[in-house]
C-alpha cells in the first residue's frame, strides 16, 4: 500500500493541496503586475499598504497567542485559520509596500525591522484579549469593518490592492461569521457569559471611533484607497443586528483619545504594542544576518 513508506512521499514534488491548512507560502505576488499605476503616489500607496497590512499582522499576532489556549479543540482550529488568513493578507500587503515605495524590500523587512512608531495599525488590533469574549468581540468589530473596506477596495485603481481585496473578502466574511455566531452564543448563553460579553464590548468600544477617521494618506489616494468614514453606516447596521441577536446593547462609552494628536495610523500606540513587537521581532533581530 502507498503509505508503507511515508518517507517516499517526502520526495514528491510540491503538492500544496496536501498541506492540511494554509497553502501558498511562497512569493505572494508572483505573476501579478506590480507596477505602481501612473498618477498614484508611490509613497502614499506604500503607507496605505502598511496601514492595512499592519492591521492584519498585528491582529494575527494576537490570535497566534491563543494557540493551545482555546476553549475547545474545534475553536483551536478555527482561530488558527483566521490567524493564517490575516497573516496571508499581511504578507501580500507588506510585499506590496516594498514595491510601491521603490525600495524593493521584502515583507520581512517591514514586519521585523521597523520600530513601534513606524507601525500603522489601528490600536484595537494590538489590544490584548483577556478572555474569549474579548477575542470574539475584537474579531467581530475588526472583521466587520475590514470586510466593508475590502468590498469597496475591490474597485481600487491599484490592481494589486483590488486583487488582494478580492481574495480577502471571502476570508473576512468567514471570520465575521465565526465571531458573530460566538457573540450571539455568549450574549444569549448564561449569566456569566452575558456579563463577560458586555464587559468585552465595553473594553473594545472606546477604540471603535478610530476605525472610521480618515488619514491624510487615505484622502490623497482618491480612487485607490477607501475612505473609512464611508463604511460607518454599514458597520453600525451589522453590529446592531448581531448585538440585538445576542441580547446586548451598543455600549455608551467615550472614545479613547490619541496622543499628541496621533493614534494608531500615525504610529501612536498603546503601551501593549511594545511588548507585542518585542515578541514578534526577537528572533529575527537576534540573527540579523540570517536567512530562514
Amino acid at each position: 500500500m502507498a503509505f508503507d513508506n511515508a518517507y517516499e512521499a517526502l520526495a514528491d514534488a510540491h503538492d500544496d493541496a496536501r498541506w492540511a491548512f494554509g497553502t501558498g507560502f511562497d512569493n505572494p505576488l508572483s505573476g501579478v503586475d506590480t507596477t505602481v499605476p501612473s498618477g498614484v503616489d508611490g509613497e502614499d500607496l506604500a503607507q496605505y499598504c502598511l496601514m492595512l497590512g499592519d492591521d492584519a499582522l498585528v491582529l494575527s499576532h494576537r490570535l497566534q497567542q491563543w494557540c493551545t489556549r482555546a476553549p475547545e479543540l474545534e475553536d483551536e482550529v478555527a482561530i488558527a485559520n483566521i490567524g493564517l488568513d490575516l497573516l496571508g493578507q499581511a504578507r501580500l500587503l507588506l510585499a506590496r509596500t516594498g514595491r510601491a515605495d521603490g525600495s524593493g524590500r521584502g515583507e520581512d523587512h517591514y514586519a521585523y525591522f521597523r520600530g513601534e512608531h513606524e507601525f500603522r495599525n489601528v490600536r484595537l488590533a494590538e489590544r490584548e484579549h483577556a478572555d474569549f469574549a474579548q477575542l470574539v468581540a475584537t474579531v467581530l468589530v475588526l472583521t466587520t469593518w475590514r470586510l466593508a473596506v475590502f468590498q469597496r477596495l475591490q474597485a481600487s485603481a491599484d490592481p494589486v490592492l483590488a486583487a488582494i481585496a478580492q481574495k480577502g473578502v471571502n476570508e473576512l466574511t468567514y471570520h465575521r461569521d465565526y465571531a458573530a455566531q460566538w457573540v450571539v452564543r455568549l450574549g444569549d448563553g448564561t449569566e456569566t457569559s452575558h456579563a463577560r460579553t458586555v464587559a468585552a464590548f465595553d473594553e473594545v468600544w472606546p477604540l471603535v471611533a478610530e476605525l472610521f477617521e480618515p488619514h491624510d494618506v487615505e484622502r490623497r489616494l482618491d480612487g485607490v484607497a477607501v475612505d473609512p468614514a464611508e463604511v460607518r453606516a454599514e458597520f453600525d447596521d451589522v453590529l446592531a443586528q448581531v448585538l440585538s441577536a445576542a441580547t446586548l446593547e451598543t455600549p455608551v462609552v467615550p472614545a479613547k483619545a490619541g496622543v499628541a494628536g496621533g493614534k494608531g495610523r500615525n504610529g501612536r500606540h498603546t503601551e501593549q504594542m511594545g511588548y507585542l513587537l518585542a515578541e514578534l521581532q526577537s528572533v529575527a533581530r537576534a540573527y540579523p544576518e540570517a536567512t530562514w
Binding site: A20, F21, E72, E74, V77, A78, N81, N170, Y174, D177, Y178, Q181, R185
Partner: peptide
Amino acid sequence: SLRAADDDMALHHARDLYTRRNE
C-alpha cells in the same frame, strides 16, 4: 465526527476540519 453546541457551529467546524474550507 466532531462536537458542537448547535448546527451552525457544527457546519462551521466541519468546514474547517474536514474540508479545509474547500468552497
